[in-house]
Design a binder for these strands. Structure first.
Lengths: 106, 106
DNA sequence: ATACTATATTAGCATCTGCTAATATAGTGA
DNA sequence: TCACTATATTAGCAGATGCTAATATAGTAT
């Protein structure tokens, strides 16, 4: 039926599907940030930072504005925060369950 | 700092990052389903269905139980539904904005 | 203009993903 | 046991993704 809708959703999800980009979005939840901050904070090369930010831009997950020589990034949609929160909870609980299962063996 | 947490989150997100799997999860929101239902419903080959289900299983997004010769799949975590809902809304609004932008040109 | 900083883009390569076709495993019933 | 259905797994290939190094673009300041 509406297979097209899932294709659109998948485009957004794919943009989220990398630890670096998840961390970038987490940093942006604290507020607008200069592109130049991610490299030092996350120990990434300049090109790498720029490419990951480009993925987020193309998925319309972030907005940008120029401030002189710098480019400022911010979250485009507050609902992204909800998604990130829920995902974090799911992942945390999965981890806790895995630990519990391991302890049961020992 | 806790880069490991983002790696775990990304594992979950990657499992969501395909239109076929998004649609499978959407179908599972309606209730438990036999693996055999997805192929006919989504026009996919048997191996393809099984592989996508394996991705969802390995990410612990679905639970399975055997019922005779069939394997029944269900959502492992209700919070997945929230994520899917929010993603659907984000994607829908992005699409609406894109359409509006196009109409502005014309 | 030149020099400088910040970003973005490109090229090339290695790795990952997703598909189809083929094979293997598991349960059921004659 | 054999035959049958449902699932899962594997092999091989095509296409996507992510990285580094190099190059291009944009804005600022002298």
């Amino acid at each position: 039926m509406e297979e097209e809708g899932y294709r659109l959703q998948a485009r957004v999800v794919k943009a989220l599907a990398h630890p670096t980009r998840l961390q970038m979005l987490a940093l942006l939840r604290e507020g607008e940030r200069c592109a130049c901050e991610f490299g030092p904070l996350m120990e990434l090369g300049q090109a790498n930072v720029s490419q990951h930010l480009a993925v987020l831009r193309k998925a319309h997950l972030v907005d940008t504005r120029r401030d002189g020589v710098r480019v400022m990034y911010s979250l485009a949609d507050e609902r992204t925060s909800d998604v990130l929160d829920t995902l974090a909870h799911i992942a945390r609980d999965q981890f806790a369950e895995a630990v519990a299962a391991l302890e049961e063996v020992a």
